[in-house]
Design a protein around this nucleic acid. Structure first.
Length: 391
DNA sequence: GATCCACGGGAATACACGGATG
DNA sequence: CATCCGTGTATTCCCGTGGATC
């Protein structure tokens, strides 16, 4: 928690006891700086990255494990520390008259959820490596790649790129394609869910590191830590945390989503403590299986806008894609043609963020319509979307 | 089959913006 | 400075295909 948050929290205290002090620590897609209880995984990653400390480039590798095991949190945290270290070391070397001390590689983290095209990928990497700002328009992908080659040519040791969420929108073949034609002083750490074999990443990597789901006790710790940062004192009992943890089956994502919804529900009721009914209701709201809100919140703005309207739509307006389209497109807040809204709905369904469910074929002629059902908990999306768009 | 919608791929068009040109 | 050009992205539109009933 940063200082601003601490001060804000003191301010709020004076009004009246507020259950929710801060949504951020409760968010299942926010990663806190130091993930708890993940020491062994850090150690294995550091073993793999060990050559970096001698100024050599580690080979390609693959970190994999189930949904909500903390993979992204671990790598984000680790890479930001390593990058900082790398920058500091380099500046020391620059200002020192003595040479010969090994130059560490650079470390860049790329999330393929936000970086889906080759253009976006090269842009992100380049932006992290170059001091100058990189244009986002009027420049070809090929030019961007050339620039990246040039920058890498000046890197003594090279760069390690963490590529998160391989296998969602971007598969192994596309990953390899992105690195094709780039200098060999660039290696990658892929992160995904599938095993090295089923993703064929074993063909490209020397090392695979597996992350296991959380043990229930670890999840309880995670929940208590987040609750202490985001909620009023004593709002979450140890017993309720245990219930959530047991249900979540090792997924910190699911556990935090449940906590978030339960807290929101209690807050609506003007209570300052969570009850078992809050938790039950929360669990009922989370679809199984569900898709990460990280993916939802990484969609283009207008697609998120369509979803934001969708989650508030009356049940009766959701009977068919056509009806849903009309309801959303007729909203003045949505400046899109009905055709586009419909297109978006189909595309969002195609990638599994909503699911088309065929109506029990009844009256009428022609192909029976289908309605869309959410594959993510609406309460969390609603709050996070509104928070993000109110700033 | 014939007919009626639902779907969804992909072409066409509009757009935003950095850079080049005059 | 005003304008045009090149490029990737967003939006819109078109139309063939899929799947149901009669």
């Amino acid at each position: 928690m940063d200082l601003d948050a601490r001060i804000k929290r003191r301010q709020n205290r004076n009004n009246r006891p507020r259950l929710i002090q801060d949504y951020e620590p409760l968010s299942p897609v926010a990663h806190i700086a130091e993930p708890t209880n993940r020491g062994p995984v850090f150690e294995r990653l550091l073993d793999h990255l060990d050559p970096a400390f001698d100024g050599r480039l580690p080979p390609n590798a693959y970190l994999y494990g189930p949904f909500g095991a903390g993979k992204s949190a671990i790598v984000k945290s680790l890479f930001s520390h390593l990058q900082q270290l790398s920058t500091e070391t380099k500046s020391v070397i620059h200002t020192s008259t003595r040479v010969r001390s090994p130059s560490p590689p650079g470390f860049v983290y790329v999330d393929l959820r936000e970086t889906q095209t080759g253009f976006a990928f090269y842009h992100t990497v380049l932006d992290a490596l170059a001091d100058e700002s990189i244009p986002e328009h009027g420049i070809s992908t090929e030019t961007l790649r050339d620039k990246l080659r040039t920058v890498l040519g000046n890197e003594r040791t090279g760069v390690v790129v963490a590529v998160d969420h391989v296998g969602e929108e971007t598969d192994t073949g596309e990953l390899v394609e992105l690195f094709a034609g780039l200098p060999s002083n660039m290696s990658w750490l892929a992160i995904g869910r599938g095993t090295p074999e089923e993703t064929r990443l074993s063909e490209y990597t020397a090392t695979s590191i597996h992350v296991d789901r959380y043990q229930p006790q670890m999840l309880v710790d995670v929940l208590m830590t987040r609750a202490s940062e985001g909620l009023a004192q004593q709002a979450l009992s140890h017993e309720l945390a245990r219930q959530i943890a047991n249900w979540a089956d090792g997924s910190a994502y699911d556990a935090l989503a449940a906590l978030f919804i339960a807290a929101d529900r209690a807050n609506q009721d003007q209570r300052t403590r969570l009850t078992e009914a809050d938790v039950d209701a929360a669990i009922a709201e989370i679809p199984q299986p569900s898709v990460s809100l990280g993916r939802v919140l990484a969609l283009p703005d207008n697609k998120q806008l369509v979803l934001r309207e969708l989650v508030d739509l009356d049940e009766t307006k959701r009977a068919s894609v056509t009806e849903t389209t009309e309801a959303i497109a007729s909203n003045p807040a949505v400046d899109l043609s009905p055709g586009t809204v419909k297109r978006f709905l189909y595309e969002i369904a195609e990638i599994g963020i909503v699911e088309r469910v065929q109506a029990s074929s009844r009256d009428g002629k022609g192909r029976p319509p289908s309605r869309v059902e959410l594959r993510f908990p609406p309460t969390v999306f609603r709050r996070l979307y509104d928070l993000k768009n109110s700033e």
